[in-house]
Every structure is written in C-alpha cells, then in structure tokens.
Simulated scan of single mutants.
Amino acid sequence: MTGGEPKRPFFRPPHDEDEWEWRHRLRANAGTRLGLRLVVAVVGLVLVLGGFALVPLPGPGWLIVILGLAVWASEIEPASDLLEWVKRQVRRWERWVKAQSRGVQALVVLVTFAFVAGVLWLTFRLTGLPGFLPDGLTRWLEANLAL
C-alpha cells in the first residue's frame, strides 16, 4: 500500500454485485453482522488448527488449512491477502516442479514419500498400530519395521 491509498477495513464490506442475498441480509443488521463474523472466525479457526494438526500426517492437512483461510477470507480482508499469497506460492512451486527434469521430479516424489513414510512410522511407533489393520499386515509391520 502506498501513502495515498485509503486504508482497507479489517472486515470486508458487502459487495452489491457479487455477494449472496443472505449475506446482504445478515450484514444489514449490526447483531447478525457480528454473528456472521464470529461464525466465520470460529469455523475458520477450527479448520486452520485442525489442518495444522494434520499436516505431519498423510492426508489433506495443508488443504484443510487453506480451506480455513478461504472461510476467513470471506469476511476478513487480511485473510484474503494471505490466501492470495498462498495461492501464488503454490502456483510458483507447481511451475518450478514442472520446469524440472523427470529426474528432479522423481526426486521430489521420492523425498515426499520418504517424509510421509517416516511420519507414519514415527506415529505408529509412538502410538501403536491401529486395530483395523489385518493381522497378517500387523505381524509383518511388527517384524520388519520394528513397530
């Protein structure tokens, strides 16, 4: 932001052409506007914290964090800016990987796989194997991976 630009509000104001009608109605009343913002803040926080808790595990941890940011971005301007920054970084990473040779791409996949496998091994080592695994697989994992 340069010195001559007006400061943007922390919470997004309603937009006439691109907002849903129910949002207009909620934002029209001070009480429901506050309620909407609180719901957005809490739902976004649950998603972001839950996503961060899942990041070291295989699965959609980062996707859930980004979803939480998207929820926040629907009402909170700084979250919208952060979400746009995250999108730019993901696109940048994607372009970088695509521009690399097949060998480097394979190495990225291998390192990612090794990281996920290491996190799974550590998780199972600390917490034990889940009970839903078939007995034969459980015995093999215990015998061959020191779980």
Results as ranks from 00 to 15, higher is better:
Trp62Glu: 09
Gly4Arg: 05
Phe10Ile: 02
Glu77Trp: 01
Lys87Met: 14
Ile64Phe: 05
Val116Gly: 06
Ala30His: 10
Ile66Met: 14
Arg23Lys: 14
Leu69Cys: 12
Glu5Ser: 11
His24Arg: 15
Asp135Val: 12
Gly31Thr: 11
Glu5Phe: 01
Gly68Asp: 07
Glu77Asn: 14
Gly4Lys: 03
Pro78Asp: 10
Gly44Pro: 01
Glu17Asn: 05
Leu49Trp: 04
Glu142Asn: 11
Leu107Arg: 08
Ala106Gln: 10
Ala70Tyr: 13
His24Asn: 09
Leu57His: 07
Val109Ile: 14
Trp62Gly: 13
Ala41Asn: 02
Thr123Val: 10
Ala79Thr: 06
Glu19Phe: 03
Ile64His: 11
Val46Pro: 02
Val55Ser: 08
Leu120Lys: 06
Arg33Pro: 00
Val55Trp: 07
Thr2Asp: 12
Gly103Ile: 06
Ser80Leu: 15
Pro6Tyr: 00
Arg25Pro: 00
Val108Gln: 04
Trp93His: 06
Asp16Lys: 09
Gly128Leu: 07
Asp16Glu: 13
Pro13Met: 04
Val111Lys: 10
Trp20Val: 05
Phe132Lys: 02
Thr2Leu: 07
Trp121Asn: 08
Leu45Ala: 15
Leu57Ser: 08
Glu94Asn: 12
Gly136Ser: 12
Trp140Asp: 09
Pro56Ser: 03
Leu147Lys: 01
Arg139Gly: 02
Leu63Asn: 12
Ala143Met: 06
Arg8Thr: 06
Pro134Trp: 03
Pro13Asn: 06
Pro78Met: 11
Leu67Val: 04
